[in-house]
């Protein structure tokens, strides 16, 4: 546990395979935001056999609905939202080629199986550390679903975005393992 790894996006299979539960990572490059409402739309398009408004193959989705940016800031405070609300849509997105997700809280059995099957990774960012996380986001622009306000899909340029590997593609789960190690 706890060697800091630097990652850049899009994620290669090689990078994904090298990640282990509990790794501290710093992510740089482009990541995309998406929450419940955007996920539902993406899922519906994939189910209908259509084209997504953004190419998410190899990419990371960050589950976040940022606060408004103050003048001079690229983005407002931007910590993760709870991931289970995306669980119903996630296996389909992983099948399509999404490689990473950043959120908080545990995932369903189906999602964890899909992470293994499609060689992907689930990271947690520190829930509530929104002002700190925003410092690693240097540019933000809405690229789809503007009508969803804070829930629109944004393209974020990040440098050293801090996250922790929860579910690696070998099927390990830090939420289960961490609790087991520290249970009295």
């Amino acid at each position: 546990m706890s060697s800091i790894k630097r990652l850049s996006t899009p994620l290669t299979d090689e990078a994904v395979l090298s990640l282990k539960m509990g790794d501290d990572v710093l992510i740089s490059g482009v990541i995309y935001t998406g929450r419940d409402a955007a996920h539902k739309r993406l899922f519906d398009i994939l189910q209908a056999g259509g084209e997504l408004p953004v190419d998410l193959r190899g990419q990371i989705i960050y589950y976040v609905g940022p606060a408004p940016a103050k003048p001079g800031h690229a983005i407002g405070p931007a910590g993760p939202t709870t991931s289970y609300r995306m669980d119903a849509y996630t296996p389909r997105l992983l099948e399509y080629g999404l490689k990473g997700m950043i959120g908080k809280g545990n995932r369903s059995h189906e999602v964890i199986e899909a992470i293994k099957k499609y060689k992907a990774v689930y990271f947690a960012a520190i829930g509530g550390a929104a002002a700190l996380i925003a410092k690693s986001i240097h540019k933000a622009e809405v690229v789809a679903y503007d009508d969803l306000g804070p829930e629109a899909i944004r393209r974020l340029e990040v440098v050293d975005f801090p996250a922790v590997v929860i579910n690696d593609c070998m099927g390990n789960d830090l939420y289960v393992e961490g609790e087991r190690r520290f249970k009295l």
């Binding site: 706890s2 609905g65 606060a67 407002g76 929104a130 700190l132 961490g178």
Partner: peptide
Amino acid sequence: AGRAALEKIRENQKIAAAEELAICQ
């Protein structure tokens, strides 16, 4: 890992107060 998370939480409180930003989005 828990301590590292707490340190980030404390750091975040300091940034929010100093820059007058919401602690959490």
